[in-house]
Design a protein around this nucleic acid. Structure first.
Lengths: 230, 230
DNA sequence: GCAAAAGTGTTGAGTTTACACCCATGT
DNA sequence: ACATGGGTGTAAACTCAACACTTTTGC
């Protein structure tokens, strides 16, 4: 049985970036070969025989888009026998998070065309990749409540409103600004920075904060049940 | 690249059962072939080329132990290049939950030796299977808070104390009996049964309840944020 | 009657929600 | 001066945590 097994394995990534103006965006690359040629798909590809899965994902993201994510986590393996017309191909799907300042695509750098698309306005997708993206967001909705992943989508210094709007986008509901600040500051998770946001497009410049990871791990180790968002 | 890829894929299961006397138990089967011959490992094995992953798991559990789980969910894929001495073998790991009344092993039925082991007193394990079991429990700790998976580990009719002790075991802390009952009944998730527990080993016979799944989906659809346990 | 587990309410503390006005900046 | 988003406090509702005695059964 093992001798006759012929299953190929890809490692693919749902790479996300977020800002309050555009919402959540996903990194797609245009396929230049069949199957699904010219459709958009997730960056990713076949894993090398002796290569760890995460390496494969980092490599493929870099090769196809020139970007480097700062957070990467595997979340599900897609294995329906007919999901790839070439035969049995498993897709070990990952989510990657990237900060806005590191998300700029230098077009034409790679040999593939890569673009950011709004997660809620996807083009026609190759394979089952629309389903993979949906599953990635479900996964994040579970994790964001108790783990400080949101900060992986924000620059090192950020206004509270950006954090708030990220949660609003993900859970698709409005959040009271005052209550949100009370909660997040009450936990002591944000460190006030000297600077304020320069040249806001409109309105009063916002105070910038950074994530206090030491405080967070301290709380976790003390056994406090940390719920960032409910 | 894809042509030369040679990666094999197994689907394995961390099958769990629970009761308040013995705690959480995991189903292991004794390996009868190398590598790791005579060590204990998770039920599972190579996926057939055209076989869905879940099917493979159900098949292997049945063949190796004679049991059928009533809940099965994939939770992580283990892919370290050196985790199997035979070469590159990915393990798509699942958790299976089974009710106590369906968990009796008919020894000698299969050709492999299968046994239930207390999760906190594992024998020496094959491959990275100890790590897989730990990851399964971490996964369940995330899911049990908001999803009604606990009921998959209890018989159709169960005393509240059994549910409570399951949560106590998983989160490793004591829970106040009165507060727990208030919460769970407050949500309206349990239906009182006619019967009481017959012949308790000691003490007053407990009222039996069943899980009210309709009520649960109703709450979910109403958009109520259902937190079974905090 | 004794041992063992089940059942049951109240109170105080803490948390969550709802809500509206002034502030700092760019144009 | 006006438009835009940022910053801030309080009171009421609700939820959570702590706590002990009585009941039902088997032996």
């Amino acid at each position: 049985m093992p001798v006759h097994q012929h299953i190929r394995v890809t490692a693919d990534a749902v790479v996300l970036r977020f800002n309050s103006k555009e919402g959540m965006m996903v990194l797609l690359s245009k396929r230049s070969i069949p199957p699904h040629i010219f459709k958009w798909g997730l960056p990713g590809g076949f894993v090398q025989n002796d290569e760890p899965l995460e390496n494969a994902v980092h490599r493929e993201i870099r090769d196809e888009t020139g970007l480097r994510v700062n957070y990467l986590e595997q979340f599900k393996t897609f294995g329906a026998p007919d999901r790839d017309p070439r035969g049995r191909v498993l897709c070990v799907a990952h989510v990657g998070l990237i900060k806005p300042s590191a998300a700029k695509l230098t077009l034409g750098a790679g040999n593939k065309e890569a673009r950011w698309y709004p997660v809620r306005e996807l083009p026609q997708m190759a394979f089952d990749h629309a389903e993979v993206i949906a599953a990635a967001l479900d996964h994040l909705r579970l994790r964001f409540r108790h783990e400080p992943l949101a900060f992986e989508l924000l620059d090192a210094k950020f206004p509270v409103s950006e954090l708030e709007k990220l949660y609003e986008w993900l859970y698709d509901r409005m959040v009271d600004r005052r209550n949100f600040q009370k909660k997040i500051h009450g936990l002591g998770l944000l460190t006030t920075q000297q600077e304020k946001l320069k040249h806001p497009l409109q309105g009063r410049p916002a105070q910038l904060f950074s994530f206090n990871r030491e405080k967070f791990t301290e709380l976790q180790e003390k056994g406090t049940f940390v719920e960032i968002f409910s």
